[in-house]
């Protein structure tokens, strides 16, 4: 077959081009691209703030000492239940422990659980959806019925059933939350896979002789990755909420450990007198989830639409 590669002379790159129809748009230079990114961000201060919040939370999760050098479990009893001040940004709790330090150190446990939950949902749900969407027929039918059933049990109850079976603890809570959102991932992944599998360009690839599994790898996966990634980021926010709910109900790490949800549960007893015990960890959760959702929205085509 190599003869066809050299059958004709070198390609004529410009001579045969008749006028206007081949005028190509000029590709942007690196400088222009940088300028475009800056302008995009400049118009979206909210997105910039969201990215900074997520960055801070990540630092808190991996190097809590950098943001709050103190020990989260040691307090000065004389300083108990102090409102927020310069010395204690988020105030102190009933044992005189610094709430800010506890929130920062709590990020690690809460985020760990969230990451595990999203990973479980993404991997299991993604694979199920890919299988259903790509193989089709009875495999699709069977898997989607299972998904329907999972969706018909409210997520938090499914998580509670799993916790009943598995027991308490951060990791178990994480798995319970992850399993409960497998179904929605499977659904999105299936829909994306089907959409792309039936797209004209995949048929075109098949029509030029590309094998089925090659189209899966080269066309379906790369094109489905985007929407699924957006969902994963969105799910990250939901998982933070779900994990903190279960932790609030008392199914997470045992007491001295600072989890975001259990911090609020502790503060609940002092609600009438010390508002900051609940408000501050809650605001931290809200800020994190809001930021994650904002980033998810930006990923969901805002950039490509802005061009």
């Amino acid at each position: 077959m190599t003869e066809l590669l050299i059958r004709e002379g070198p390609p004529d790159s410009s001579g045969t081009a008749p006028g206007s129809s081949v005028a190509l748009p000029i590709p942007p230079t690196r400088r222009e691209r940088l300028h475009r990114v800056l302008r995009f961000l400049g118009r979206r201060p909210g997105l910039v703030v969201a990215s900074l919040v997520v960055l801070l939370v990540l630092v808190a999760a991996f190097a809590p000492g950098a943001l709050a050098p103190g020990d989260p479990n040691v307090g000065v009893v004389a300083d108990k239940l102090r409102p927020p001040s310069a010395a204690h940004l988020f105030g102190t709790d009933y044992l005189g422990r610094d709430v800010y330090t506890r929130v920062v150190h709590g990020a690690s446990l809460s985020l760990q659980a969230t990451v595990i939950a999203v990973a479980v949902a993404l991997v299991v749900g993604g694979l199920l959806g890919l299988l259903a969407g790509f193989v089709g027929r009875w495999v699709d039918e069977a898997l989607m019925r299972v998904v329907d059933v999972l969706l018909s049990i409210p997520a938090i109850l499914l998580s509670l059933a799993l916790i009943t079976a598995l027991g308490y603890g951060t990791i178990k809570v994480a798995i319970a939350v992850g399993v409960a959102s497998v179904a929605s991932f499977a659904r999105v992944m299936r829909a994306e896979t089907m959409r792309i599998r039936r797209s004209t360009y995949v048929e075109a690839a098949r029509a030029v002789g590309t094998r089925r599994y090659v189209t899966l790898w080269r066309h379906v996966l790369p094109n489905a990755a985007g929407p699924v990634l957006v969902l994963a980021v969105l799910e990250f926010g939901l998982a933070i909420l779900a994990v903190s709910s279960l932790s609030f109900l008392g199914y997470g790490a045992p007491p001295p450990a600072p989890e975001w949800g259990s911090l609020i549960a502790e503060g609940r007893n002092y609600l009438a007198t010390s508002w900051w015990l609940c408000a501050m960890p809650g605001l931290t959760i809200a800020a994190t989830v809001l930021s994650v959702n904002r980033i998810s929205r930006a990923l969901d085509g805002e950039w490509s639409r802005a061009r």
Binding site: T2, L4, L5, E8, P10, P11, D12, S13, S14, T16, A17, P18, S21, V22, L24
Partner: peptide, 20 residues
């Protein structure tokens, strides 16, 4: 490399510049 050369030839055949 041969495929790249062939691609350049083909786009030339449909009257597009190789930069495409």
């Amino acid at each position: 490399a041969e495929r790249r050369a062939r691609a350049a030839e083909l786009v030339g055949r449909v009257a597009l510049p190789a930069s495409v």
